[in-house]
Amino acid sequence: MERQITLIALFAALIAVLGLVPQFTLASGVPITAQGMGIMLCGTVLGARRGALAVLLFLALVALGLPLLAGGRGGLGVFVGPTVGFLVGFPIAAFVAGWIVERMRSTPILTAAFIGAVIGGIPVMYVFGIIGMSVTLDKTIAESALLVTPFIPGDLIKAGLAAALTASLLKARPASVLSRG
């Protein structure tokens, strides 16, 4: 139990650290950051439930005002801006990614983690992000969807990196990949 709590806290910290990687903001106001890969890793490494808990812990710290989001953003204000949908989708994306990896036990971890990271980290997260952008930017769903299309290639790269890191961690420290435990 203590080990699982420690890993949840560690992965919440990992998401925060990935926010330190310099961001690039598109015209839509949504930044391209490495934090999406942290969300994917929460699911692929920790599994569905623990991955979602790590992300919820991270979001709770952001809501308390800690500047943990990319660009040093934090506080309740981020939950009413253009990125609100993505923030809401973060724990669901981690859950879905972890759920897929847990269900694909007979599939090699690299493949399972890539599929989980892609499905959780792109369509699942984007559904929430597009809806949030549509509401906050007063755009149609189609217009908001067009705003996020430039992110897809980068998110596919992040999913590949998350899968490779998950596979490497399983090889080096099998007990640390709880999605396969």
Rank of each mutant, 00 (worst) to 15 (best):
I100F: 02
Q35C: 12
M104E: 05
Q23G: 14
A34I: 15
L46W: 03
G75K: 06
R50K: 14
G89W: 05
P91R: 06
A63C: 11
V84F: 09
V88T: 09
G71I: 14
G85F: 05
P67V: 12
L59A: 10
V80D: 00
G77T: 07
G36L: 10
A34Y: 15
A48E: 04
F90N: 05
G89V: 05
T44S: 09
A52V: 00
L57I: 12
F24G: 10
R103I: 00
G74S: 10
M40F: 02
V96C: 03
R105P: 03
L68I: 12
M40C: 05
G43R: 03
I32A: 15
V45F: 00
I92N: 01
G89P: 01
G43C: 02
F79P: 07
A54M: 00
G85M: 08
G81M: 04
T83Y: 08
T33W: 11
L64W: 14
R73W: 00
L76F: 11
Q35K: 13
L64P: 14
R105V: 09
V62D: 06
V78W: 03
A48H: 04
P31V: 13
G98M: 01
G77S: 07
G71L: 14
L59M: 11
G29Y: 08
L61W: 14
A70V: 12
A93I: 04
A63K: 09
F86Y: 15
V101R: 02
I100Y: 04
A27K: 08
F90W: 12
R73E: 10
I32P: 15
V45C: 10
V55G: 05
I39R: 06
F58G: 09
L57E: 06
V84W: 05
L68K: 12
A48Q: 04
P67D: 11
F24V: 15
G29A: 09
I32W: 15
A94W: 00
A52S: 06
G75Q: 07
V55Q: 08
G85W: 04
G29I: 11
F90R: 07
V80C: 05
G77Q: 01
G65D: 11
L46A: 04
L59K: 07
V84G: 02
F90H: 04
G36K: 08
L41Q: 06
T33S: 15
A48D: 07
L66W: 14
G47F: 04
F79W: 08
A52T: 03
V62G: 08
F58R: 07
T33D: 13
W99E: 08
F79H: 05
L61N: 12
V84A: 12
V78P: 09
R50Y: 10
G38Y: 05
V55D: 05
F86R: 09
P82L: 13
F90D: 01
P31K: 13
G89N: 07
P67I: 10
G72S: 10
F86C: 06
P91A: 10
V101F: 01
A52Y: 01
V80E: 07
I39W: 03
F90A: 04
S28D: 11
G65F: 11
A48K: 03
G71R: 14
F86H: 02
G77M: 00
L41T: 02
F58Y: 15
R73P: 00
A97C: 02
R73I: 07
R103K: 11
A94G: 02
A27N: 04
G71C: 11
G65S: 13
I92K: 02
